[in-house]
């Protein structure tokens, strides 16, 4: 075009050329695209700050790994996933629909018409109309949408999930014997906008398979969690460092529990299990930086909070920014420390 022809020579030397501008736009879109379905904040500023958009992107694939012996069983990974699922509803966007979810009788499709046992659903109107209903509905009201959980070994235990905030009545379990069947079921699930999320326990995840999941998730806005479970050390060694198409990769490690004050003082109680903790590592995050935190295990509302004690922090300290934040939190009142 003659017009652009005329203008190009007059561009100042420091200005990016149109071609690189387009590339830049592409890059921005690459970062923003996964966020168009909104995010699910952890409610812990330290963690949310490390994630682009301030939370876990919905409509994307997130990978959760175990550590050590737990790579095989994925107990901590399941607990972490349960905690996230507890706060994820069926509506991908924090709009008035999440309001309705919390308002209505808390139904789960497979349970039929009755409310959940022992669950008190507080109408959001009771919390005050102006209080950013979207945000409240998102972070405080527990999710209600069904969750498809695809697994090979049927060892998921309902009461244990409940302890991390996930109502097992929301789960639809799909058991399959092979990874490809699980991937297929996950992909089918990701095409169903009525689901809150899809979880799959998978050993091998190829780049292509991960990409397919990611595309399906982006299209429907359903969030996917891939719990990696490796049969043995060999599979773990082969798969652990493999890149994948997931938006984030987490590793959750069970840490020795923190002695509570009463335990520390009483010699008789010293050998009791204290407050269980996890080390949560964000190993990879598109558009974010790797980081790690020590948190207390998710409670029955699905919320985690940073562990108050820093003694067990690994020598390889995370980013300075994280260290400062943790220090900030440490100074805060214990009552305020609990997020959510």
């Amino acid at each position: 075009m003659s017009f652009s022809h005329a203008i190009r020579p007059r561009l100042p030397a420091g200005m990016p050329r149109p071609a690189s501008l387009a590339a830049l736009r592409d890059r921005i879109r690459q970062i923003e695209l996964p966020l168009r379905h909104g995010v699910l904040p952890f409610g812990v500023p330290a963690i949310d700050d490390a994630l682009p958009g301030g939370g876990l992107a919905r409509g994307a694939v997130h990978e959760i790994l175990g550590a050590g012996g737990d790579e095989e069983d994925g107990a901590a990974a399941a607990g972490f996933a349960a905690a996230i699922l507890a706060r994820i509803g069926s509506s991908p966007m924090p709009t008035s629909s999440s309001h309705r979810c919390a308002m209505g009788p808390s139904l789960s499709p497979l349970k039929g018409g009755e409310g959940k046992p022992g669950r008190l659903v507080i109408p959001l109107s009771a919390l005050g109309g102006g209080e950013g209903r979207g945000e409240v509905g998102d972070s405080r009201a527990l999710g209600t949408g069904p969750v498809l959980w695809c697994l090979k070994r049927p060892d998921l235990y309902g009461p244990g999930l409940m302890a991390h905030g996930l109502d097992p009545a929301r789960l639809v379990l799909v058991s399959a014997s092979r990874d490809d069947a699980i991937l297929w079921a996950m992909e089918e699930g990701l095409r169903t906008p009525g689901l809150a999320a899809v979880v799959g326990e998978i050993g091998r995840l190829s780049m292509v398979a991960g990409r397919r999941l990611q595309l399906a998730a982006e299209r429907s806005g359903v969030t996917a969690f891939v719990l990696r479970r490796w049969r043995n050390g060999e599979e773990a060694a082969a798969e652990r460092e493999r890149p994948s198409a997931a938006l984030t990769r987490w590793r959750v490690t069970s840490l020795p529990s923190r002695d509570e004050l009463r335990l520390r003082n009483d010699p008789k109680l010293q050998h009791l299990v204290g407050r269980p903790r996890w080390r949560v590592e964000l190993l990879r995050c598109r558009g974010g930086v790797p980081a790690q935190w020590v948190v207390e295990v998710a409670d029955a509302t699905g919320h985690v909070c940073l562990s108050a004690e820093l003694a067990d922090r690994p020598a390889a300290a995370p980013k300075q920014k994280m260290g400062r934040r943790e220090a900030d939190r440490f100074d805060a009142e214990p009552g305020q420390r609990r997020a959510g």
Binding site: S90, S91, T95, S97, S98, R100, C101, G104, P105, S106, L107, S108, P109, L110, T144, G145, P146, L148, P168, A169, L171, V172, L173, V174, S175, A176, A181, W184, A185, E188, G189, R191, T192, P193, G194, L195
Partner: peptide, 28 residues
């Protein structure tokens, strides 16, 4: 966004999964 709609939405999914993997593969 209502739970009824969600139940309605996932029924076809359950049928597809059941047809492929067998209905006993799907449980709650």
């Amino acid at each position: 966004g209502s739970p009824e709609a969600a139940a309605h939405d996932i029924a076809p999914l359950l049928d597809r999964l059941g047809a492929h993997l067998g209905l006993d593969a799907i449980s709650r």
